[in-house]
Design a protein around this nucleic acid. Structure first.
Lengths: 203, 203
DNA sequence: CATACGACTGTTTCAGTTAAACAGTCGAAA
DNA sequence: TTTCGACTGTTTAACTGAAACAGTCGTATG
């Protein structure tokens, strides 16, 4: 029971932090604000999380878990690799729309990113490469895809995806309104088609 | 004769500026330094170029001209569109290696870019989209490429290219050594293959 | 013992100040 | 026409002091 309450508090803090970090970004949010959001004193937060950084990292890990759980459930289905890829790419778009902290970290300049956070991002990326590589290997194995090096191809595809997001941020001067977002989604969809055509064996 | 000397001076200043901007970046270079490089007083530079910004813009325009002239000579050749695309992509890689100021501008965050320079970059980009669109249309016309909207596809392809560069900058924390550059080139080459396969009609 | 926090500390950030650096100007000289 | 010394106003960078902030610890409470 006490353990349950402790976990609830932990999750409440995590949730409050997640909201504030998503809205204001890590550096603009104070521990006092998060504490007030959950009705506690600041010092009490440190009972649950040793540092502000570790709180942020847990927010990121939490969002990464949501990202991967939304995608993993799909990996065991017996569907063509082509369809799996489409499904993955579509879910990726959705998740990056809602998982704000994860998205922000992925697009943040390395000059603005603490080493520890950049490492966290690299881990996330590595995990995503593995998933995409897995999809490519399935396609290769059942004769759908022509991919000589699935790992490198996975890396390249993720670079392409990154390109669209980073590009729109640059061109729209960091202000992605709804219209720009729709435009970016449209670009992404065309990109996905080119990629699928580019790796698919045609008969 | 005096006109010729004036043009020489103009070009000398442009060359000195280009070197310094390439090495130190626009903001770290002073007009005094450029003046010293060409053996003039700072005030004399303003006889040839009204402002530091306009000097920089001319450096960029100059590099853009070099970029496009290296590519345009290829556009009139009677070769398959597929081969033209490869040639264009290869030349693009080369040019971005040597045209340092243009490359820096293309990769610079919009927050760090003056509005006037960002506009200049957008113009450059627009021009490149036109060239790539032209290649795609040639391929479409002679039955090589399946591209429903050449203009959008050109935009998407350039986003993909941007992705690789921006990605490596992020991951290598703005320190692209020779090794990382080679890795990026390798990624680009894989990307080019996927793109070509992705737009090519196969029989 | 687990949980909470008031009072506190040392560090970082921020706002303001000042001096230096810098882009740009202009009158005068060659 | 071309050059530049001397100058100006603005911007940048360094500095300072105060406030803000992350984090700590002793103590209180259930």
């Amino acid at each position: 029971m006490a353990e349950q309450l402790s976990t609830e508090k932990h999750d409440m803090i995590l949730g409050a932090a997640r909201k504030r970090f998503a809205y204001y970004g890590f550096s603009k949010v104070t521990m006092d604000e998060i504490a007030a959001d959950v009705g506690m004193g600041k010092a009490s937060l440190y009972y649950y999380f040793p540092t502000k950084d570790s709180l942020y990292h847990e927010v990121i890990k939490h969002e990464a878990e949501q990202f991967f759980s939304g995608i993993n459930s799909m990996l065991t289905e017996k569907i063509p690799a082509c369809k799996m890829f489409r499904s993955y790419a579509g879910k990726r778009l959705e998740h990056f729309k809602t998982l704000v902290n994860l998205r922000a970290l992925s697009l943040q300049q390395s000059a603005e990113t603490k080493a520890s956070s950049l490492e966290l991002f690299k881990d996330f990326h590595k995990h995503e490469v593995e998933i995409l590589q897995h999809i490519l290997q399935i396609g290769k194995k059942n004769g759908e895809f022509s991919v000589s090096n699935p790992q490198q191809t996975a890396e390249v595809i993720l670079q392409m995806f990154y390109g669209s997001r980073a590009w729109f941020l640059k061109i729209k001067e960091n202000s992605l309104d709804e219209e720009a977002y729709v435009e970016m989604e449209s670009s992404m969809k065309s990109m996905i088609e080119i990629i699928i055509n580019g790796i698919t064996i045609r008969k």
